[in-house]
């Protein structure tokens, strides 16, 4: 139990709790717009940015953010080129990102240790800079979502109606892309690029089962993500498990329980 009172664990907990608010929030918008795979794609591409950051000696998360932003715009462009096969653009960008990442990682052979920490997360190595970045991202995301809650809802529910109402749809689409890229690059170190997607999508999957209204679904995703983050980190600390994996598996456990409960109620 001693680990729970250590400084690195408390930093991990703070970082986890902050990401536990923003990641499922952005994830809900993505899932409802049927863009669930975008989170995974951006995370894979930002790994390439992290690798480049190590290679040229720039703060890796910042480079990861730049790459994630570039990828989100590339996806939008490709989506327009292949209108009816939009998911194709996601597959292309994702494999491109992984290829670029492995290329950059092999160029700089010296930092192999760090590769796994960004793929699977290394929440115990969060330093103060990371916490400040995560905190800033949280403030920006919460501010923008609160400011434009109505518009983001309408855009997500009925994009055509949003346009007919005279809303600047393009501006809001870009805003969602930028906020998602911010959240993903900030959460890579916490759950890892391979697992970020879980924190974005599984809370949303849970809310589809239990929430009746959009407001409820917002509350649901945050509560479930926080349960999983705090519970998963505690379990990882006490039993010495991989933190990122514990959080994700706990999320899946919650989802399975909710599905089972729903079935139980129906029968």
């Amino acid at each position: 139990m001693d680990i729970l009172s250590t400084e690195f664990f408390q930093r991990a907990l703070i970082g986890g709790v902050l990401i536990g608010v923003t990641a499922p929030l952005m994830g809900l918008f993505l899932v409802l717009r049927r863009l669930a795979m975008i989170g995974d794609t951006l995370a894979h591409v930002s790994i390439a940015g992290v690798a480049l950051g190590f290679l040229i000696g720039v703060y890796p998360i910042a480079m990861g953010l730049v790459f994630a932003l570039a990828a989100s715009f590339a996806i939008e462009k490709l989506r327009r080129a292949y209108k009816t096969y939009a998911e194709l653009s996601i597959a292309i960008i994702m494999s491109g990102g992984v290829a670029l990442a492995s290329l950059l990682f092999t160029l700089g052979k010296g930092f192999n240790v760090n590769v796994t920490s960004y793929l699977f997360g290394s929440i115990y190595t969060l330093d103060n800079t990371d916490l400040i970045v995560i905190g800033a991202v949280t403030v920006i995301v919460l501010f923008m979502v609160k400011l434009h809650f109505k518009e983001l809802f309408l855009l997500t529910f009925d994009e055509d109606a949003a346009a007919v109402n005279g809303l600047p749809v393009r501006y809001f689409n870009i805003m969602i892309s930028v906020l998602t890229a911010l959240v993903i690059s900030a959460s890579i170190k916490i759950v890892g690029a391979l697992l970020v997607s879980a924190l974005l999508t599984i809370p949303a999957a849970c809310s589809l089962i239990i929430a009746r209204s959009f407001k409820q679904s917002i509350i649901t995703v945050v509560v479930i993500a926080e349960l999983a983050v705090i519970g998963g980190l505690m379990a990882a600390g006490v039993w010495n498990l991989a933190p990122g994996a514990s959080v994700v598996l706990l999320l899946i456990l919650i989802l399975v329980l909710l599905l089972a409960m729903k079935r139980g109620f129906k029968i």
Binding site: K150, F153, F157, A161, N165, A211, R212, S213, F214
Partner: peptide
Amino acid sequence: PVTVREVILSGLY
């Protein structure tokens, strides 16, 4: 996940 009231209000946004 959206209620009837939420949909109708969105006509004002």
